[in-house]
Structure formats: C-alpha cells, structure tokens
C-alpha cells in the first residue's frame, strides 16, 4: 500500500482548562481520496483541522502528512504539505491584491522570480480566476473570494487540500461552480462540512465526529442513509433529500 496522504493516530487534545476536545481520533486518507468530515457544532472538527496544519500540537498521538510526522522540527514543511482553506475568505485573503495573496504561500517557502509567477498563474487558472489577479480581494464576490482562497493554497503545491466549510453562505450558483472546480482538481481532499448533499456530491467517503470521537467511517451514501446514526449525532438531511436516489458519479 502507498504511504497515506494523511495519517492521524490516536490523537487526543484538551483545552488548557482540561476540557477534552479530541479523544483518540484515528484515521487515514489515501492519496487521491476525497473525504468529508461531518458532525454537529462543537464536535471538535475545527480543532482537528488545526492539528493537520501543526497550528495546534497534539496532546497525545500523532499526525503524519505524506510520511512526514508533524513535530516541532518540521512544522514549516507540514504547513506546505497541508493546504488549509479557512471558512471565511476574508481571513484568508489578507494581501492588497489577489496576485500577491496567491504568491504569499510559495514565497514563504522560498519560491521566487518566474517560478513564483508561474505558480501563481497555474493556481489561479485551476480555479478559473486568472482575470482578477490584479484586483484587491475585497472587490470580489464571496464565491470568487472562496475560489481565490483555494488558489492561495494550491500555489504551495500541497499534498492534501483541507477545506473548512467550503460551501457556507454561497448562493446556489457559486456553490455549484465551486463543486465543479473542486472536482476538477487532481488532489487529495479533506473537507469539513455541514452541507451533507455537498459531501455526497464531492466525497466518496465520510467520517462522522461527535464529542471529540470518530463515530463512523464509510462510504458517504451509506452514512447519510443510516437514519439511526444521523439522528444520534444531530445530522439532518435537507427536506425531501434522499441519498439513495442520487446517482453516483
């Protein structure tokens, strides 16, 4: 078997006041897989995501990205390997222009000159945002900003793309456009979402997390079809939505 793109082993974490947030979380993601992480608010999803990028250090257990363990010595490389797209693109896009913002990541890893320019244009092309390269981010629509946010991470050539609520607050058309773009990317993906149809559309596999524990791991259609499981963990499908009627891609 190949080296997993992401391996999380027995990960536990608690707040400084002792409240446990993650309890022995254990899973791995293979290269090329697209995996959704589902769960109610307060389940520990965001805390888990921050571990994947070494912003939080594990209390117990380990995180390994493409064979490299996330330890103090190699945080920098871990951050390149894990491309983290935050929920609010206004937090993610902080530079005066889109071009500078996309260049920010690779520049921090020593990429410069024509190679940097090349990376920036490649990443913007992948999300269809070439034409806004010289605009300030705050002049873009939310859908455009979220696509640019994906590009800022793609420019670092990560091993795995981690998305926090990619579809939140998007209008239906932008939501669909983003799904189309994410599907077209040839990259391992790990996506935190409350948008269950989105998980079904984009990810063949889903994890369910509640109260800091992984409670389910399996094909997305099966998980969404398990009414008991869904109800037990406060997951609710949109009215009239039946996952068994959706054709797999």
């Amino acid at each position: 078997m190949s080296v997993p793109a992401l391996e999380v082993r027995d990960l536990s974490f608690e707040y400084p006041d002792g409240t446990p947030v993650l309890r022995s979380v254990d899973f791995h993601v293979h290269p090329g897989e697209r995996v959704a992480l589902l769960g109610p608010n307060g389940a520990g999803k965001t805390t888990l995501v921050l571990h994947l990028n070494a912003i939080l250090q594990p209390g117990e257990g380990s995180v390994t990205v493409a064979g490299l363990p996330a330890t103090d010595d190699n945080t920098h490389e871990i951050r390149r390997r894990t491309g983290l797209v935050f929920q609010d693109p206004d937090d993610q896009l902080f530079m005066p222009t889109v071009r500078q913002d996309v260049a920010f990541g690779p520049a921090n890893f020593g990429v410069e000159g024509p190679e940097l320019e090349h990376r920036v244009m490649d990443a913007l092309e992948a999300v269809g945002m070439m034409e806004v390269a010289d605009r300030p981010p705050h002049h873009l629509s939310l859908g455009q900003r979220r696509r640019v946010a994906v590009a800022t991470v793609l420019a670092m050539r990560p091993e795995i793309l981690v998305l926090d609520e990619p579809s939140s607050n998007l209008d239906p058309a932008s939501r669909h456009e983003l799904a189309h773009i994410l599907q077209s990317l040839d990259i391992t993906m790990f996506m935190v979402t409350h948008d269950l149809p989105y998980a079904l559309e984009l990810c063949e596999r889903s994890l369910v997390m509640d109260e800091g524990r992984l409670v389910a791991d399996g094909p997305t259609a099966e998980i969404l079809g398990d009414r008991e499981l869904m109800r037990a963990h406060r997951l609710e499908l949109p009215y009239g939505f039946d996952p068994s009627l959706v054709q797999p891609h």
């Binding site: 920098h76 951050r79 983290l84 609010d88 206004d90 993610q92």
Partner: peptide, 22 residues
Amino acid sequence: ERGERVHQAMVARGYQGHMPVF
C-alpha cells in the same frame, strides 16, 4: 479577533514573521 484569525491563516501558509517582498 479577526486580526488573530488572519495571523493564523498566515501561519498556515508558512509565515515566519517576515512579509515576503514582491
């Protein structure tokens, strides 16, 4: 708080205290 989140987003993309020069 947004300033703190922005900092986190910068760190996530390899920021080590020096803004790159373009």
